[in-house]
Amino acid sequence: MAPKPWVPYLLIAPAVLFLGALFLLPLVQTLVLSLQGEGGLSFANYARMLGDLNFADALRNTFLLTLVVVPVQIALALLMATMIARIGAGRDLVLWVWVIPLAISDLAAGLAWLAILQSTGYLNSVLFALGLLDGPTPWLTQETPVVLFIGIALAEIWRATAIVLVILVAGMQLIPKEFGEAAEVFGASPWQRFRRVTLPLLKPSIQSALILRTVLAFEVFAVVYALGGRNFPVLVGEAYVWQGENQNTGVAAAYAALIMLISMLATFVYLRVLRTPREQMA
């Protein structure tokens, strides 16, 4: 039977239609919405967003959170993936336990950490029992911004490191073990083996993980909302407030467009900086 050239296109058509209808179309609509002013196209919504009282805080907080959380997650996941690679029996069980947070929704994760960090939560109970506190102390307020930030960062790291781990473990399995053995025979210490062989060969996986985690970090919302509410404004949270409380879809769309722009720029940077030339692929 002669191969029909249109068969592959037919087979990907449902996925293309699905993505087109439910991603591309809303995306364009959002952009249009954000640019709609009274009587035609304008940047009024963007001007209003920039002039918003919370805008600077939200932008700063989102970037700060991303800059702290993503590197820590990559470093932690690298460490965990390296440890997993050394485990013989029980490896699957350890991996399974480590990726449990993946199964929990981000709001539920936020609520779990709220139970720990709120004024009558587990942390304060322990500190009180140890005699370090005199009574219930609020941590998640505007008066304690550092603790609030650390709490949110911790919850995010706990919740979303596993997805990085999964990507890196899969990537490490693709590296033939002879590369590590060759490095070992030719005098590389464990750290040199990691630095000179594992890390460069893992670059494509690290790139994927970075893109995924960074894009998602810029979209952080539920955990922040559960722990800090508007004490810790972030970009998606502001879009939510403008859409829900202020009933202003235009400014909400402007926030959404800004988040998209930032995500695309970050992805572009990762694609360029962490590019692996074809001739250097494992």
Partner: peptide, 8 residues
């Protein structure tokens, strides 16, 4: 056997 020449 598979050379293990570093690709990078």
């Amino acid at each position: 056997q598979n050379y293990a020449v570093f690709p990078h």
